[in-house]
Design a protein around this nucleic acid. Sequence first.
DNA 1: AGTGTATTCGC
DNA 2: CGAATACAC
Length: 478
Amino acid sequence: MQLVWFRNDLRLADNPALHAACASGEAVKALVCLTPAQWAEHHESPARQALWQRRLEWLEARLQAADIELIRLNLQRFADCPAAITRLVQEQGASALHFNYEYPLNERHRDRAVCEALDAEGVTALGYHGDLIVAPGQVLTGQGTPFKVFTPFSKAWLKRLLQDDHAPLPSPIKAEAASCAETLQPSESASEAGEQVGFSGTVSCVGARAARDAAYPVSDEALHACLQAFVREQEPDYQRLRDFPSRHATSGLSPALTIGALSARQCLAVLKAAHEDDRWQQSTWLNELVWREFYRHLLVAFPELSRLTPFRPETEARITWQDNERLFEAWKQGETGFPIVDAAMKQLLATGWMHNRLRMIVASFLTKLLRVDWRKGEAFFMSQLIDGDFASNLGGWQWSASTGADAAPYFRIFNPQLQSERFDPNGEFLAEWLPELRQLEPKARHKPGAGQRYGRPAPIIDYKQARQAALDDYNGEA
DNA sequence: AGTGTATTCGC
DNA sequence: CGAATACAC
């Protein structure tokens, strides 16, 4: 008997670990380790945990139909895994354990300890790079070193991609009868989406509204319909429309990617299939998937990143973080008095999801204007996001704080009002999340007047002063 | 994946 | 005098 250990790879197709176990010809059982104390330490959000559980139930039903039992080990922390899995392997008489790698350091330590424990029992434990399109270590500079800058990485990544066939692995489990297929809600589902790359996984089907209703679909039928619909109908306009939060022009597949209900490789396959020529290679949406790959490759090449150390410590040494709990609290609650920041935070609090353009705006606001340590923002995002993904979130926050690989220069400070006017020109997004502002003319919503506040708080900082203070601090003039 | 300010251009 | 451009931060 062989075991497949499912983690954030809750899928049947394009799953190398499941594929290998089934290919052995032996009986197969599936395993999950429930480690709520560890998830809490990782600030994993309730929304993400609920999505993972729902998808697990879907997966369990499919596995059962193929006579694959799902075994749940109720543990607390990753450190409990080696002993519990060893005991299980002995009880079940398993000959091998298969799993797909996860790249944060705690996960890698967990997996190494499990491998060593099983090795001592004479049981084979095998890992696979099922989470990535191109495996870590496969994209290197001419000197054989890892890339630290995105643009050359992406060129080398594409070149490496084209050297191999990256067709997704088929599901080793026969398709089920359509009876348990989720039905897609008409019209809304495919268009409400968003994807995240800077800060999170990348893709979901239903955006904001659905998250609030716990209505992100978890069946393959629904997820693949969403992916197909996005690539066919929205991806062509993705570059033009993605930065406007009110347009719902992103894929919204990030929660599914983050828990591995969909793989990046499956996304790529659908994108390629939609093109008869090579133009898919220029897709801006593909570029977002490459960001996801980049941040995972970095995490493998520079394991210390997992300890929340700045990628470039010399940059962070020049920053004095302010430990102002009042300002941090205002940011968390969406009560800063800056409409675009507050609307974005309200969207996050209400739905567990935030448009990526807005993630950049609120992260710049927190790190540059409030000068709150980026690690506080990183942890808060993880605690709220339904698509919380350690590598992407970490990469996004370090990019925003200008401490990361290929980060924004420190002086790149977003002006919240200009960003609002540029990316929500008609004030529609503001009106959706700050209903008090609906009484204002669209153009006036970006900056409520000095006297009348229309039910919104006064700005907690003076933008010009805060911007100058950040620059002065960084330049050593403080 | 930016902003602020000075300078120049064009009417 | 607004738009385009240049450049510093």
